[in-house]
C-alpha cells in the first residue's frame, strides 16, 4: 500500500517535506517514525488525514500521515 508522508519543522532537515511511501499492510505509525531515524520522544503531533492520530494507529492505503516535532517553549 502507498501512503503520503509529510514532515514538519525540524523533521524536514536532511529528509523531505513530502514523500510517497510504499509500506506493508498493517504498518503502524510508530514503525514509520522509527524508519525515519526519529525516536518516540521527539514526536509532538501525529496527524492522520487531518486529524489527531496515535503512534499505534494502523495505516491504510491512501492515508496522509503528518509528523510534527515536540514544541514546548514559552
Amino acid at each position: 500500500m502507498k501512503i503520503t508522508l509529510k514532515l514538519f519543522a525540524t523533521f524536514r532537515n536532511g529528509r523531505f517535506k513530502i514523500a510517497e511511501q510504499e509500506l506493508a499492510e498493517g504498518t503502524e505509525v510508530r514503525q514509520v517514525v522509527l524508519s525515519l531515524g526519529l525516536t518516540e520522544e521527539e514526536i509532538g503531533i501525529v496527524m492522520l488525514n487531518g486529524r489527531h492520530g496515535e503512534l499505534d494507529s494502523t495505516l491504510s492505503h491512501g492515508d496522509i500521515l503528518s509528523l510534527f516535532p515536540l514544541v514546548g517553549g514559552g
Binding site: T10, I43, G44, I45, E54, L70, V71, G72, G73
Partner: peptide
C-alpha cells in the same frame, strides 16, 4: 502532549 515522555521540545 499525548506522546510526551520527558524533557523539553525543539526549543
Amino acid at each position: 502532549y499525548r506522546h510526551y515522555v520527558a524533557g523539553k521540545g525543539i526549543e
